[in-house]
Design a protein around this nucleic acid. Structure first.
Length: 840
RNA sequence: GCCCCUGUGGCGGAAUUGGUAGACGCGCUCGACUCAAAAUCGAGUUUCUUCUGAAGUGCCGGUUCGAGUCCGGCCAGGGGUACCA
């Protein structure tokens, strides 16, 4: 083997073409091998590959290569989540067509991914913005419509009155449009919805079977779906109407001191009919953003309608308010308010001087205990509540529900927090919704043989609003039902729809239908799905729903799309800041900065910079590191190794120049070690054999658990051991093993070394080294000896030494005796093969 | 606001079901090699200390023979919050 340096700039490209030529990573669905579908969340083609993508795809790549080595037929595809707002923003700002912009980005990013040597099956590449993808999505949408899972209803959007356009939540800043600066209004539009609430129970139950999902994601989804049992009952109003309200705390009914409805509630509208003041209040509620965070943090405001509601048990007249914190979408859009035991009601009652009554207390004789400036939402004993006094919360709930049901005034009801999925977007760059509006026939589904309904190319973004609405011809069609003049739906689908079934299309790509059921059965569910924690709720819940919906209508046999889920952390970087003359903070990019151990200066003029917090890379903070530059400098393997080292994959990874240099040094250190390989060396080295086999087993275990940082640490340890070992057959074997252990992580280096050591075949096709179980067992263990829980000594004993012997050995220790100092021994705790604790 | 997560040396972190806190890497210090430097190799590196030990895993408290790990209460940072993807 030559002793030249490893040169990534030639080796990387050479092996990348070798894999491509041999179609090494092409998935064969006809294979007899067990199937393994490894998938990372596909990227949005924003322009350039981000270092976070590199981390995500490196993790998936290691797993995919490992699965292949362990005898699996692996499907590891890549595609593009290619519809979305940034393409339209680029169109408005730079005058490029969203499609041209997106496709150019895809080309560039694809070449970037190829430079990293990922083991991807590019033959299955797809982009959601192409008609051969979204046409099938339109067909699926029509199938769901036929099954009754799609409907239309009016729903609120953020309306920018100057730009005459609908704004996304992120485009509303402090209640104003991001471009126009105009005060945003809530406006109601007719929109398309998917009946995800039909699946609320299933989606909740299904979480129980997802054992290989992180607990935190299951918990977040559970809370999002938000099943709650409560009571719906009606108040008799002083105007003769009945008002149904919903509460999850019927046990606190005697603490109700007012009743409130949402600003959008019919009762609010009728109250406003003859009151300018009420109309003004409702209008005020409609200003500002639509997000839950804004609604919940806004100051609690109300309008007293003058109507009163009769309490069903006390007969008291409670005032009826219109309140800005009551949500029309949850329950009945009306509540009974119990200030003592709900924080929002407490704040409201404090502001409007309404009574705050205690009806739950720590104990029965705490009935008069005052509140400490906030509501008490917890458990306790019911007090001041007539026939409920002394009951526990749950018991009281049952009692009230029973009495209300007997009165015929309401009933116990399960309510979900989950709302139906609104999929209409008033934008151009998305999947056209396949429906036609006809004055005579109403809303008519587009015939399936008219699919794909493609986007028109000749659009402009110079005027605000949806180009599909303005287009001179696109929307004008004949009604498929009566043949008369009609118009296409101009809304497009939420891009979350695109990402709710792409994993099915990867597995099977017929031209005439979205996928083939039998092919889906071969590959699905995805064995391991990897992506960012930011998708814990929306994307993952929508994909689960879409899969279940397709299963319900018989298109597939899979209920859950992702058997295992892994959520990775972000890649972060420190910021470099300097205040300008006006005190405004300016940020500088890493390549403009001279970074020393504790200080940083600006390359341009040598002025000192403040080193800011380590945060998620973002353009505005200028702390973005470009993967191209570092791949050019250090090679793909060093970058991949850095992505896997040190930080646990679920946590954030701080990027550092020193770190990547260390990784690069290790690549070359390994190369030097590989070049010491002696095929003919003789003799056995038992200790080294043991370490080699222990490392094979441990690295395999770590990769399967996606604990890449631990696998990396073990490879460092074995490397150090092999370097120190004298030549022997064992050492040569250890070197070969090391090549294979690093192959999933540093595939280019490994191929280069494999070619010189083995001479034939590629390491990418080689089976994972076998473990001799006999070599995994240690015969000696170190025992910790503690006195009163503090370490005093350690001793070495044969594995399996009896408790009695260990105790005797511990007591024989000088250090232990000195610590005990003649005191009476009360107890000795012995954990075999681990420790002895002497208690005096 | 609400839901979820995280917090361990100078830094990234390791530590089966509660059982030797700091593996491994980075950085730093010293040494070897060199005319010199880079690269490489070797040794050291939680803090304090009377050199015997003591303290120590964000803070306060609890359970236990024993707590980074379990429980209660805080603090700080992060993710999501239904039209960013």
């Amino acid at each position: 083997m030559s002793d030249t340096r490893f040169d990534p700039s030639s080796a990387d490209a050479r092996w990348q073409s070798a894999w491509e030529e041999a179609q090494t990573f092409r998935a064969n669905s006809a294979s007899e091998k067990p199937k393994s579908y490894v998938l990372e969340m596909f990227p949005y083609p924003s322009g350039r590959i981000h270092i976070g993508h590199v981390r995500n795809y490196t993790m998936g790549d290691v797993l995919a290569r490992y699965k292949k080595a362990t005898g699996h037929e692996v499907l590891h595809p890549m595609g593009w989540d290619a519809f979305g707002m940034p393409a339209e923003n680029a169109a408005m700002e730079k005058g490029v067509h969203p499609g041209a912009w997106t496709r150019a980005n895809i080309d560039h990013m694809k070449s970037q991914l190829k430079q990293l040597g990922f083991a991807l099956d590019w033959s299955r590449e797809l982009a959601t913005c192409e008609p051969d993808y979204y046409g099938h999505e339109q067909a699926l949408f029509l199938d769901l419509y036929e099954a009754g899972l799609v409907y239309r209803k009016k729903s609120e959007v953020n309306w920018d009155p100057v730009d005459m356009t609908v704004l996304a939540n992120e485009q509303v800043i402090d209640g104003k449009g991001w471009r126009s600066g105009a005060e945003v209004e809530k406006r109601k539009l007719s929109q398309w919805f998917l009946k995800i609430t039909d699946f609320a129970g299933e989606l909740l139950e299904g979480l129980g079977g997802l054992e290989n999902w992180p607990d935190k994601v299951r918990l977040m989804q559970e809370n999002w779906i938000g099943k709650s049992k409560g009571l719906e009952f009606s108040f008799d109003l002083s105007n003769g109407e009945r008002l149904p309200v919903y509460t999850t705390r019927p046990d606190t009914i005697f603490g109700a001191s007012f009743v409130a409805v949402a600003a959008d509630h019919p009762v609010a509208h009728s109250a406003a009919a003859d009151s300018a003041e009420a109309q003004a209040f409702i209008a005020a509620c409609k200003r500002g953003g639509t997000t839950a965070a804004e609604v919940e943090t806004a100051e609690k405001l109300g309008y007293d309608t003058g109507i009163s509601a009769k309490h069903p048990f006390t007969g008291a007249d409670l005032p009826l308010y219109i309140a800005n914190f009551v949500l029309m979408d949850y329950g009945t859009g009306a509540i009974m308010a119990v200030p003592g035991h709900d924080q929002r009601d407490f704040e409201f009652a404090t502001k409007y001087g309404l009574p705050i009554r205690r009806v739950v207390a720590p104990a029965i004789n705490d009935a008069d205990k005052p509140f400490d400036g906030e509501a008490e939402a917890g458990e306790g004993v019911i007090v001041n509540s007539d026939f409920l006094d002394g009951m526990e919360v749950e018991e009281a709930k049952r009692e009230i529900i029973g009495r209300i049901e007997k009165q015929g005034r309401g009933e116990g009801r399960t309510v979900w927090r989950l709302r139906d999925w609104g999929v209409s977007r008033q934008r151009y760059w998305g999947t056209p919704i396949p429906f036609i509006h006809c004055d005579a026939c109403g809303v008519v589904p587009a015939p399936k043989d008219s699919l794909p309904i493609t986007l028109p190319d000749d659009v402009d973004f110079k005027t605000p609003g949806n180009p599909l609405v303005r287009h001179p011809t696109w929307k004008h069609v004949d009604c498929p039902s009566c043949g008369g003049k009609a118009e296409r739906e101009t809304d497009t689908l939420d891009t979350f729809v695109d990402s709710s079934w792409y994993f099915l299309r990867f597995a099977s790509q017929p031209a005439d239908k979205p996928f083939d059921k039998d092919e889906i059965a071969k590959w699905l569910p995805v064995e391991q799905y990897i992506g960012g924690i930011e998708h814990a709720i929306l994307h993952l819940l929508y994909a689960r729903f879409w899969t279940r919906a397709l299963e319900r209508i018989g298109l597939i046999d899979v209920e859950e799309p992702f058997a295992s889920l892994f959520t990775q952390g972000m890649v972060t970087h420190e910021t470099y800041e300097q205040a300008d003359k006006t005190g405004r903070v300016l940020y500088f990019a890493p390549d403009e900065v001279e970074r020393r151990t504790d200080t940083a200066t600006l390359k341009a003029d040598g002025s000192p910079l403040a080193i800011g917090r380590v945060i998620k890379m973002s353009k505005s903070k200028k702390n973005v590191v470009d993967p191209d530059t570092i791949v050019d400098t250090y090679g793909a393997d060093a970058v991949r190794w850095f992505m896997l080292s040190d930080s646990p994959p679920e946590r954030d990874l701080p990027w550092s120049e020193a770190g990547i240099e260390g990784c690069s040094r290790f690549v070359h250190r390994l190369w030097r070690l590989f070049s010491t390989y002696e095929a003919e060396a003789k003799g056995a080295d038992k200790t080294l054999d043991r370490r080699t086999h222990q490392t094979i087993a441990a690295v395999a275990e770590d990769i399967e658990a996606l604990g890449f940082n631990k696998a990396v640490a073990r490879i460092y340890e074995l490397t150090g051991a092999v370097e120190k070992a004298t030549p022997s057959a064992s050492r040569s074997q250890a070197v070969r093993t090391l090549v294979q252990l690093v192959a999933p992580m540093m595939p280019h280096l490994a191929e280069e070394a494999w070619a010189t050591i083995r001479g034939e075949g590629m390491v990418a096709d080689a089976p994972w080294p076998e473990v001799d179980p006999a070599l995994l067992i240690e015969d000696e263990v170190t025992i910790a000896v503690q006195h009163k829980g503090k370490l005093r000594d350690t001793l070495t004993a044969p594995k399996g030494t009896t408790k009695g012997d260990l105790e005797a050995m511990a007591l024989a220790s000088d250090k232990v005796q000195r610590s005990i100092d003649g005191a009476q021994i009360r107890k000795v705790i012995v954990v075999p093969d681990r420790l002895v604790n002497i208690v005096t």
